[in-house]
Design a protein around this nucleic acid. Structure first.
Length: 870
DNA sequence: TCGAATGAAAC
DNA sequence: GTTTCATTCGA
């Protein structure tokens, strides 16, 4: 999508038929064409530029554009056409993922050849494995569609013509993932958005309605669920954050560890860095008019973080409906600040609960920073938090209003909601300030990120001191809180913090009656990071974290005061750590993504699970590619990151495996019992066989039309195709019949696996044609040669799975999967195999992914069994 | 700019 | 049913 697409785009300008329309716009506008080029270089810029361009393009037409916007679909289509690339299908994902491998194996092979091989691999790929890609593709598509409601795969050629004017309109939304509907309205917003991430931006613009701060398309996709959910806001934001947060906490670390942390960590860090970088960029770029939207996005994230943390607090302290939070959070950014100001009571300042939240965040961020894994993200958070704090604390001048108001609000309204709102407002204000600050003060960032917790403390102190006396108290409070949070992060820091905190807290108590609240607030700080977790598991984790943090930092030093809570936390913590945590881990391990996916598609996108899975030790190349892409797509941001994560999480299969399979396939040709079985199984699985048939027939037809020897073709079909026949039978008949025949009689044909099916697009079928003898045309021969060579070249047996293992983040899952359905094994399972599978299933029942896969397999099994029996 | 593959969608 | 187009990147 990214690089390639862009690369294509330029050509697009000149393009051809269907696409042309959209490209027309691009072509139309010289800028667009440039943009397309630029695209490859800088995604963010691209997006922005595109957005700008679009308006430019449409510029005059804006009015019409709007109209067009009304006709979202068309517009979207157009816009989509321009930018949005249709989501990749499973095969493409597979290709993308494995092409590098193929190339490695066969350096001289060009992409075509590689594609052929990939096709073969794909054909050989077990359904289970395919399913992974299929699921991914589906999710990807779903997310894409959600992001781009009106998106149409095939641009209506006619449309483009009709609405050149409209096209411009559409442009705004399109960008990468064209977001149809809303974008039209807010070209400006859309523009803004684009900067950070094309996807996210779009989301923001579009999704923003919620103001959720759509981190990414994916997130948007997940919005539905989230919105419905009680804690939607928290969940969404949490997703991205969760990773970072997770890092900070031991539990998360463990999980990470279980997952392929090493591989993942780098990626995450990079992504985070990117994301971190992007926001400021947005701010700067968006800076002016539309800066808010952008800010909001970034801010939103922060806010979400804060909210999440606070929500957690709220939950702990006050049991108010989370929904209120979410709603409040959503709305607040724009409106509430003012309200707060109105409400503003000076008294509240001491409470500084809001401030505490940020501080908490900071602490959490610092803690995260301490973790090697997620320094960057944490750094961002830290920045923001620090900024927020600063704003609140130091900046009272400019933005004091908000923080104060927030505080005031809190006082006025004891309700969590009000607090949340106030927090939100404060956050926003802070964020604004922070953004500026960030731009202005890179140093702090650097400091904060590297120093982590430590840096945070000094900062706050310095700033707070500057502020007024009253505020100083608050600041102290905050500081203490922060320290506490930090303490959680590091023991040493904790000790200090404890001392400080204890003193401070006491002072607070005396000064303020709301000590309890504060305490509760203070505790939450740890949670802030954690709260985000979209899923229960995450929540649990967050709780754990909370408890842990309290226990460690507070319990030890403060123990006396917060004894109850600390105790609770300790208990909970222990429980969680022992039981829950394991469960969490198990989930992670087992599920990789499978389990998660099963649960929620939408959520899945954001889920850590994706990240968790197999980043990579196995395939540096792939990662590299993805990374490189990432670079190109940097702008895309989280969405893409997630996508990439997921994509990376997709299992890569070592060539060895395929070679084996391939060999098996080849064997098939000769004598195919087992191989045929595989194929058959494949055929049974899905429509694929039918498609193949159709395609094959098509090809045949084509050949006939175009040329040469219809008879030969037919013959070929027949000769080859006992398989085809079997397939057709399979379709018509029960699978069993299919299986049986295969079992019994080796079909001479290979299934037309892969490459041979479709082959030539209209024009070039010749190479496909087989001679009457069944011998393959030169091209095919080459192909077959390659396959055979490859097979020969590579020692099949040794490590088919090794790579896979590498690929799999979770050894357990891998093992289980392997045991159950090793890729090597043909789809067809012996009874013994089935029995094993069943056993596995029972054993792992907890694990969804496996279970599902097994089930699938089992589903097939009956037929197989019958065959086997026979 | 084509092409090699598969799959999904549109026509 | 047929056509487009998504990815990749060497010719």
């Amino acid at each position: 999508m990214k690089g390639g697409g862009r690369g294509k785009e330029p050509p697009v300008a000149g393009e051809i038929t269907g696409k042309r329309p959209k490209r027309k716009c691009l072509q139309w506008h010289p800028l667009l064409s440039k943009k397309a080029l630029d695209f490859s270089e800088e995604e963010e810029e691209e997006d922005e530029e595109e957005l700008e361009k679009q308006p430019l393009l449409c510029g005059q037409d804006q009015g019409p554009q709007v109209q067009c916007g009304s006709t979202t679909e068309e517009v979207e289509e157009d816009s989509n056409e321009q930018r949005a690339r249709r989501p990749m299908n499973a095969f493409l994902l597979f290709c993308k993922r494995h092409r590098s491998l193929v190339r490695q194996e066969h350096p001289r092979l060009d992409n075509r050849g590689a594609t052929k091989i990939l096709a073969d691999w794909w054909a050989v790929l077990e359904p289970k494995e395919k399913q992974k890609y299929t699921d991914m593709a589906k999710e990807y598509k779903d997310a894409f569609m959600k992001a781009n409601p009106g998106y149409k795969w095939c641009p209506t050629t006619s449309k483009p013509v009709k609405s050149p004017s409209c096209q411009p309109v559409s442009n705004p939304r399109k960008k990468v993932w064209s977001f149809s509907s809303n974008s039209a309205k807010d070209s400006t917003t859309a523009k803004k958005v684009p900067k950070t991430d094309s996807m996210p931006q779009l989301n923001f613009a579009m999704a923003d309605p919620t103001k959720m701060g759509g981190l990414s398309m994916l997130l948007l996709a997940g919005e539905h669920a989230l919105t419905n959910r009680e804690i939607p806001s928290s969940t969404k934001p949490s997703l991205p954050d969760t990773a970072s947060e997770g890092n900070s906490y031991p539990g998360d670390e463990e999980e990470l560890m279980s997952g392929t942390i090493p591989s993942r960590a780098p990626d995450i860090t990079e992504s985070r860095v990117k994301s971190a970088l992007s926001p400021p960029a947005e701010m700067s770029s968006s800076g002016a008019p539309e800066g808010k939207p952008c800010r909001q996005s970034a801010l939103f994230q922060l806010a979400e973080m804060c909210l999440a943390s606070e929500a957690g607090k709220m939950d702990s302290v006050v049991s108010q409906p989370e929904d209120s939070f979410s709603s409040a959070s959503l709305k607040q950014p724009a409106v509430k600040p003012e309200i707060k100001e109105e409400k503003g009571d000076t008294d509240d300042c001491p409470l500084s609960t809001h401030t505490s939240a940020p501080s908490l965040l900071l602490s959490s961020s610092s803690s995260t920073s301490t973790d090697a894994i997620a320094p960057q993200p944490s750094s961002q958070n830290a920045r923001v938090k620090t900024k927020s704090k600063k704003k609140e604390m130091a900046k009272s001048n400019d933005e004091d209003e908000f923080p104060c108001s927030a505080k005031k609000l809190i006082k006025k309204c004891d309700h969590a909601e009000s607090n949340v709102d106030s927090v939100f407002s404060t956050i926003e204000a802070v964020a604004k300030g922070t953004w500026k600050e960030t731009e202005e003060k890179p140093k702090k960032k650097t400091q904060s990120s590297p120093s982590g917790g430590n840096s945070g403390v000094p900062r706050k102190k310095s700033k707070p001191k500057v502020k007024t006396l009253v505020r100083d108290k608050e600041e102290e409070m905050e500081e203490s809180r922060e320290q506490c949070g930090q303490s959680s992060s590091s023991e040493t820091e904790v000790k200090e913090a404890m001392t400080d905190v204890s003193t401070k807290t006491e002072a607070e108590e005396t000064s303020i009656g709301s000590t309890e609240i504060q305490g509760s607030m203070a505790e939450p700080p740890h949670s802030p990071c954690s709260p985000s977790p979209s899923k229960l598991k995450e929540e649990d984790k967050a709780r754990e974290r909370m408890s842990e943090g309290t226990c460690e930092s507070n319990a030890e030093t403060r123990g006396s005061r917060k004894s109850e809570r600390s105790c609770k936390g300790a208990l909970y913590k222990t429980l969680v750590s022992e039981g829950m945590l394991t469960s969490l881990r198990a989930n992670i391990d087992r599920g990789k993504r499978g389990a998660f996916r099963a649960s929620d598609h939408d959520a899945n996108w954001s889920d850590d699970s994706w990240t968790i899975s197999q980043m990579g030790p196995n395939n540096p190349k792939k990662l590299k590619k993805s990374k490189s892409k990432d670079e190109s797509t940097q702008g895309l941001g989280k969405l893409e990151e997630e996508f990439e994560r997921k994509f990376n999480s997709l299992p890569q299969y070592s060539p060895m495996t395929f070679d084996k399979k391939g060999t098996t396939v080849t064997k098939k040709k000769k004598s195919d019992s087992s191989n045929v079985q595989e194929e058959v199984s494949k055929a049974v699985k899905g429509s694929s066989p039918s498609q193949k048939k159709t395609s094959f027939h098509k090809i045949v037809r084509k050949h006939k039309h175009k040329k040469e020897k219809p008879e030969a073709v037919d013959k070929v079909v027949q000769s080859d195709s006992s398989v085809l026949d079997s397939v057709s039978k399979a379709k018509s008949c029960a699978p069993v019949a299919i299986m049986c025949p295969d079992m019994q009689g080796p079909t001479s044909m290979e299934m037309l696996v892969g490459s041979q099916k479709r082959k030539a697009r209209k024009t070039k079928i010749t190479h496909l044609v087989r001679t009457a003898d069944g011998s393959v045309s030169p091209a095919e021969e080459e192909k077959s040669r390659d396959l055979t060579q490859e097979q020969d070249m590579k020692p099949l047996p040794p490590q088919n799975l090794c790579n896979e293992e590498g690929c799999y983040s979770n050894p357990r899952a891998e093992e289980a999967e392997r045991s159950t359905a090793p890729p090597e094994l043909p789809a067809f399972f012996s009874l013994a195999a089935l029995a094993e599978v069943a056993a596995m299933e029972n054993v792992h029942r907890g694990q969804r992914g496996l279970a599902e896969s097994k089930k699938k397999e089992l589903g097939q099994t009956p037929v197989l069994i019958s065959c086997a029996d026979q």
